[in-house]
Design a protein around this nucleic acid. Structure first.
Lengths: 195, 195, 195, 195
DNA sequence: TATGAATGAGCATTCATTCAT
DNA sequence: TATGAATGAATGCTCATTCAT
């Protein structure tokens, strides 16, 4: 990558960062291209030169965000803590890049995901899901996970909780019940019947 | 209620219905007052006469929606099926008014709820929560519910799943895992360890 | 005037009063027909039944106002005070119906006057001007008024000052200079050179 | 000022000119931003880019107008004519930028003035008033001005007449009485009693 | 006669996008 | 490449006026 391209990439990142910050804070719909340009200290047209349209910018912002978030998640998954702890951190760890996402942005993110936008789709298929499956298998080996439950269902479950926790209005309300939620995740509403 | 008022109420309902349909389908922000007026076959101004502003219209639309949804939920809760079946239906019953809500509308709904808008808040406090608590207590009596888990946590859990299922992009994907999800809800990822 | 007509007249007056109050307070342009209807406790349509249009309502409101103001002015002019005192009161007497008129209303009033709307025109010609001329002649007889100055010019002068004083933004600022203004009116910027 | 800025300033002036013309002719409230845009041959949005809002545009238009009017007034005041002639010209000189202002615009102008909008306020304090005081002092030295009358009162008087003359409906009617008005200004309704 | 309901036309303002340099 | 300037289209909202009872 020569100087030109490096500078170009830098500027792109600057724009993506600005966009991500604003999208996270106020949602996609409420943020105008002008605001992003302003925050990134570039002209609106520069944004169009790099990203074609607000829609495309949003797509790339999501990709940028996914990449960042994945770095954090991967670190956690590869770390040396017990299975239950991993699960708990995965769900409640507020440090993650995702923290305090404006719901509106999350929606766009999820839509992107389910729309089959190749990058996100591939990211899940090639990176996120395998790593999670690996985690569950580890959990099964250690007796934490019911062998009869499909990985898909568990994943759905975990993403669901995680996502729910991201919501501004939910997190604080639910924090006091962290223990209960964890218990529910592991043993369901019927409780640990072995005890 | 005389003829005048009846007609007024009818028109109001017509507008609310149109608004609800459109909000559900495309979200609040993407639907213009003009579109609602069009769909309801009234003039924009009539909407303003009845509802003051788009914001207020949205509030009333949410109330209208909650009322409708509650009718269905209450029927289910009062019906003569077993506890597990009730829970399952509560979560997966697609017949409910809520079906296929555009996420954006849901966001507004939840914001309304957490903002302490009196009607919704009161609705939960006075109607929804008591009925749910009653359900859980019944479940506990019959041994389906861990006595150590708080009602709040369970409710959070159920609403979370329910809400998640409402999402256009999720429902179809998750349907095949209905059984697994139900199991997870009841026994968690550890599975029914009593078996 | 039978009961019907009396009630009709009463309602008309009620509307005119409401309109006048609002016009005075906020100007003609900022007051909507709905507000007038509201303040007068009648329906908008009733206003249209009586006055045809907002424009016509305004015309009649002005007439109503002129009639009221004239009553006060006439009383003053017919009273038993000296010529200079009369002039002074005429100009500075804040009690008059006109007090604290929103400028915007005054504009409409003056436009009406200069447009040759028959009533106002006639009012001036038949009532106001003759009375003023009478006053000036009395003033001339007593040596207060230069015989060489035309009545028209004096009238213009007095109306001008009076009108200027009506303006919200002017009255308070100018009050401290009341004496100076009066002197200027009587002796001009050159001052009383006889002294 | 480079080419960019020059063109920008030019366009701004073009808009201000259009706005001033329209405001003068029909008043502020009756003129829509669209009309101004049309007359200035720019898009509405351009106006918003330059002036933020209709209100701000109006403020700047007033400033623009004051500046223009002052240029003419200053020239007159610095010219080599007698004191009485200066006063007369000041009042009756129709050439001035102010000519035939719609009253509504004048209201906004005066409101601006009395609201303490810094520019106009400062303009009066630093420029207009000192120059006028200078004029009066000159008049006093030459025996045209009563030493006992305050500058404030005289200024009030002159502005009042000037303003009154600006009004569309007044000027033509009053023109025949120019001489009388001037006499009244100098000697009051009592007349020049020295004669 | 009186009125609640309804409306077409208009307004200030915002925004994603393109033009011209 | 980068940008200041410009814009068409749309939006929420208001108002004087008319309809229908």
């Amino acid at each position: 990558m020569d100087g030109f391209q490096r500078r170009k990439a830098l500027k792109k990142t600057k724009i993506l960062k600005a966009a991500l910050d604003l999208f996270k804070a106020h949602g996609v719909q409420k943020v105008s291209v002008a605001e992003i340009a302003n925050k990134a200290n570039v002209s609106q047209v520069t944004i169009y030169n790099y990203f074609e349209s607000k829609d495309k910018l949003m797509e790339e912002t999501i990709i940028y965000y996914v990449d960042q978030a994945w770095l954090e998640a991967e670190e956690l998954l590869s770390s040396d803590v017990s299975f239950p702890e991993k699960i708990k951190l995965l769900i409640f760890n507020k440090k993650e890049a995702a923290s305090n996402i404006h719901e509106d942005f999350y929606l766009y993110f999820m839509k992107e995901y389910s729309n089959g936008s190749s990058y996100i789709e591939e990211f899940y298929e090639k990176k996120a899901i395998p790593k999670m499956v690996e985690l569950f298998n580890e959990g099964r080996k250690k007796g934490f996970v019911d062998p009869e439950i499909s990985n898909e269902a568990i994943m759905f479950y975990i993403y669901m909780i995680k996502e729910y926790m991201q919501r501004e209005d939910v997190y604080d309300k639910i924090l006091p019940y962290t223990e209960d939620i964890t218990k529910l995740l592991f043993y369901g509403i019927a409780g640990d019947r072995k005890k």
